[in-house]
Design a protein around this nucleic acid. Structure first.
Lengths: 202, 202
DNA sequence: CATACTCAGATACCGCTAGTATCTGAAATG
DNA sequence: CATTTCAGATACTAGCGGTATCTGAGTATG
C-alpha cells in the first residue's frame, strides 16, 4: 500500500495553491480582507508565508483567485436557478430566491466591496475587477434579454436593466452587511418591475 | 496691533480639531481610508500624531467626523435641490441632477463604502454607521412620502422606495468608482419609475 | 546510478502602520 | 506667584505586506 503517495512537483504545488485559496476564502469571508493576514492564512493552511508568495504575486492576487472561485459557484447557482423553470414567473421567482439567499448572507458582498475599494490604489485590482464586473453585467443583460424576448415583453433595455440590478444587488448587500434590518425583498420587486416592461406606449 | 491673537485653550483645540478634519477629509477622499496614514494627516495639518489622538479616539473616529462633515453638505445639497422647485417633475429632475453629480464624482461613495467594510471588525463603526444610514433612509422615505402625497400618487411604499433608492445609489457609486463607463442615468429613471407609482390595481 | 540543476517553500529581514505610554510647557486656577 | 491641568510632541511597540536569501527534495542529464 502506498503510504506516501507519489506526486510530481507541479501536482504538489497545485495542491498547495488550492489549499491556500480555500483557507484564504474562508478567512476573507469570515474576517474581511484587511483583517486577514497572509501569515495567518499560510499557517492555517499548514505552510509559511513563503508558500503564498511563491504561488501568488501578493495579497491582491490571492484575493482575486478567491473571488474567482466564489464567482464560479455563484454563476453556477444563477444558471441553475434560472434554467430550472421555463415560464417567466417561475424564473423570476427562482432568481429572486437566489438573490435573497446571497444578500441574506452578505459576507460575500462585503468582501467584494471591501476589495473593490483597493482598486483606487492598485491598477491591477482595478483592471481585473472592471473586467469581471463587465462580464457579470453583460451576463445579466443577456439573461434579461432572453427572458423578455421569450415572454414577448417590449420596451426593456437589457443593458440598463443589468446595471440597475447589479447596482441594486451591490447596494443592498452593502447595507445589509451592516444593518440586518434591511428589507431585501425590494430586490425581487424591482426585478419584477423591470422585467414587466416599463413600456414606451400605454 | 495683536500679532498673536489671544485664544483660549478650548478655542485652540477646536481649531486643531477642525483643521485635522479638513485635512483628513481631503486625504481620505483623495487616497482612500486605508492608504491615508494618521501621521501624514497630522504632519500635513501642521501637527504631530499626538494631536490626532488627543482629539479623536483613533482613526475610525476621525473618519466618522470626516463623513459627518461630508454628510452635512450632502444633505444641504439635497434639500436645496428639492426645495428649489414645486412641481413633481422639477423636483425629480433636481434630485436626479444632484444624484448624477454625486455619483459622477464617486470618491465620496468609495470612501463611504471602504469605511463601511470596517464595520465588521469594529462595533463602534458598525453602530454609528447603522445609525446614520437609518437616518438617511428615513429622510429619503420622508421625501418620497411628501412628493407622492403632494402629487396625489397612490401605491408607493415610501420605506421600500427609500431602501431601493439608497441601495441603488450606493451600488451605482461603487460600480462607478471603479468603472467610469457605468451609466448613472438609470438612477434617475428608476427614481421616476418608483415615484410614478407601481400601483396596486391600476 | 551518480551528479548538477531547479525551484517550492522556509527563514530572516525591512519599512510602514495604528495605537500606547510618557513627557513637556503653556494656559487655567487659586 | 505657585500649582494643577492637559493639548500636543516624542518615543516606543506589535503586527502588517513585501523582499531577499537560503535550503533541500524533485528533476533532468552523463
Amino acid at each position: 500500500m502506498p503510504d506516501t503517495v507519489k506526486v510530481s512537483r507541479a501536482e504538489r504545488q497545485a495542491q498547495t495553491r488550492e489549499s491556500l485559496i480555500a483557507v484564504a476564502r474562508e478567512m476573507f469571508l469570515a474576517d474581511g480582507y484587511a483583517a486577514t493576514s497572509l501569515d495567518k492564512v499560510a499557517v492555517r493552511a499548514g505552510f509559511s508565508k513563503g508558500a503564498v508568495y511563491s504561488n501568488f504575486a501578493g495579497k491582491e492576487e490571492l484575493c482575486m483567485a478567491v473571488l474567482d472561485s466564489i464567482h464560479e459557484e455563484q454563476i453556477h447557482g444563477v444558471v441553475a436557478a434560472f434554467t430550472r423553470d421555463v415560464d417567466l414567473d417561475g424564473r423570476i421567482e427562482a432568481f429572486a430566491a437566489w438573490a435573497r439567499e446571497g444578500l441574506g448572507q452578505p459576507r460575500w458582498t462585503a468582501l467584494e466591496v471591501e476589495f473593490g475599494a483597493i482598486a483606487r490604489q492598485s491598477p491591477y485590482v482595478a483592471t481585473e475587477l472592471v473586467k469581471r464586473h463587465r462580464e457579470i453585467r453583460t451576463a445579466i443583460a443577456q439573461l434579461v434579454r432572453q427572458v423578455t424576448t421569450e415572454a414577448g415583453i417590449e420596451g426593456v433595455d437589457p443593458d440598463k436593466a443589468a446595471t440597475t440590478l447589479l447596482s441594486l444587488g451591490i447596494g443592498l448587500g452593502t447595507l445589509r452587511s451592516l444593518d440586518h434590518a434591511i428589507d431585501v425583498g425590494v430586490f425581487a420587486e424591482t426585478m419584477r418591475a423591470l422585467l414587466r416592461g416599463t413600456g414606451s406606449t400605454s
